[in-house]
Amino acid sequence: MNRNRWVKILGVAGAAGVVATGALIARDERARRAYTPDEVRERLQRRAIAGTGEAPEPDDAGR
C-alpha cells in the first residue's frame, strides 16, 4: 500500500473514534440528567455516609 492510502485509513479510523467517543459521552450525559435534584442529593448523602461512616449534617435551607 502506498503512503496516501495509509493516511486515508488512519483519518477514517480517527473520525470513527471521535464519533464513538461523542456517542458515549452523550449516553452518559443523558443518564446523568435523568436524576432529579432530590435523587442526586440522596445519592450524594449515601456516598458521604458510606465514605465517612457518619451521617451528614442537615443544611440550613431546610431541604
Rank of each mutant, 00 (worst) to 15 (best):
A13L: 09
R30S: 07
R33D: 11
A61T: 07
R3L: 11
A50S: 03
T21R: 09
R41C: 08
A50R: 02
P37T: 03
P37Q: 05
T52E: 00
R5S: 05
N4D: 14
P58S: 01
M1W: 07
Y35G: 09
D28M: 10
A31N: 14
L24I: 13
N4H: 09
R47F: 10
A26H: 11
L24E: 10
A50Q: 03
N4G: 08
K8Y: 00
Y35Q: 15
Y35F: 12
V40H: 02
K8E: 02
T36K: 02
A31S: 13
N4Q: 13
L10H: 07
A16P: 01
E57Y: 05
A15H: 02
A61L: 14
A48P: 01
R41Y: 13
A15K: 04
R46D: 13
P56I: 13
D60V: 10
L24A: 15
D28L: 09
E57H: 10
R43E: 10
G11L: 00
V7D: 13
L10G: 12
R46G: 04
G22H: 06
I25C: 09
I25E: 09
A16K: 01
E54K: 13
A61G: 04
G17M: 08
M1Q: 06
E57S: 10
A15R: 03
D28C: 07
G14Q: 00
D60N: 09
Q45N: 13
V19P: 00
V12G: 01
L24H: 07
T21G: 11
A31H: 15
A34C: 04
V18D: 00
A26S: 12
K8L: 05
W6N: 11
R63V: 01
G22R: 02
A13Q: 03
T36E: 02
T21W: 14
R33P: 02
L44Y: 09
V18I: 11
E29A: 15
E57W: 07
G62E: 02
T21I: 13
A23Y: 14
N4R: 08
P56A: 06
V12M: 04
A55W: 08
G22N: 06
V7R: 13
R43D: 08
A34S: 14
L10M: 07
G53A: 09
R5K: 08
D60M: 05
T36G: 01
D59W: 05
V18T: 04
W6Y: 10
R32D: 10
A26P: 05
T52G: 00
M1F: 09
G11V: 00
A13N: 03
R3I: 15
I9P: 00
V12A: 04
R27W: 12
G22L: 05
A26K: 12
A15C: 08
N4I: 09
V7N: 06
P37M: 04
A48V: 08
L24F: 08
R33K: 14
A13R: 03
D38E: 12
R27Y: 09
A50N: 03
W6S: 07
A26L: 14
A16D: 02
A26I: 12
E29L: 11
R63N: 04
E29P: 03
A55L: 12
G11W: 00
V18S: 01
V19M: 03
A50E: 07
I9H: 03
A55C: 04
G22V: 06
R41I: 08
W6K: 08
A55M: 12
R47Q: 15
V40R: 11
A16L: 12
M1C: 10
N2A: 10
R3Y: 10
